[in-house]
Amino acid sequence: MLSRVAERLYWMGRYLERVESTARLVNAYTNQILDLPKGVDPGWRRLVDLNGASAVFEGHYQNYDERNTVKFLLADSFNPDSIASALAMARENVRTTRDVLPTEVWDQANEMYLYCKENAERGVLRKHRFMFLKQIVIRCQQITGLLTGTMSHDFPCDFIRLGRNLERGDMTTRIVDSAVSLLMPRLDAPTPYDNLMWVNVLKSLSAFQMYRQHVRHRVKGEAVVKYLLQDSGFPRSLGYALARAEALLGHLPRNEAPLQRVALIQRRVKEAALDTMALDEMHAFIDQIQAELNNMHEQISATWFSLEALPAVQTQVQAAAP
């Protein structure tokens, strides 16, 4: 399998996941602010901060109000992480790998792209937003379903899933971290809405229901963080995403270095004593995991995509000598 094709499929997996998780996130926030009394800052800014996009945002907007923030996340083409931008990238990756993907995947990706182009601006308005985001999530799920149901589960499929799981792990840590960083400065003076915020974190990752079923606790900061980082059964928890990534890496050729990396992160995550960590320790810990995830990506890229560093050996070369 060509490295270029592998790389495009990997990014297709990442971008589609980014589209879906952004849609879920904005939806959860929109629901939450409806519960907040007037005068409490709904914290739209956090949605921009958690993607590390405040500089780009401030280049175009004066303030972090709802309209600006949501437009930035849904429709703005100058934001490379907006649903519209990520979807355009996902589509381009599908388009250039059409020969290895089931035709229906291209059809769906293209349709979703056209749908988004047509509706993203309208989706910024509260009255249309729910419908728009729901459509985006459903359509992403449709593609995931098509891939599962109609594509051979070999290398090409492995790269798509690898991309999806790394992106998920990344998004989950970002969302958890954004809550942690928000609470840190007001540790001594918690507000009555702090707990509500943890509920919202769960909902942003579509994890609320599963949390209730599996944790049985009332919603509490440490338990939520533990669940989202360490649980092995919930598909959007970091622990789960890493276990999936490990399994996928196991199928691929020349996988020693990437496997070592993923094992290292897994160990870090499993061994972290999250219950006893203070918020600032937790923040530092998540930072470290994020850096590790990034290294993981670099390792995958170096192993399978760029190949510049590899010496032109391969035993067949010598076989050609007379």
Binding site: L2, S3, A6, R254, W304, S306, A312
Partner: peptide, 10 residues
Amino acid sequence: YMRTIEGLQR
């Protein structure tokens, strides 16, 4: 050579 996921191939 071509760049493949299995390495460089002649």
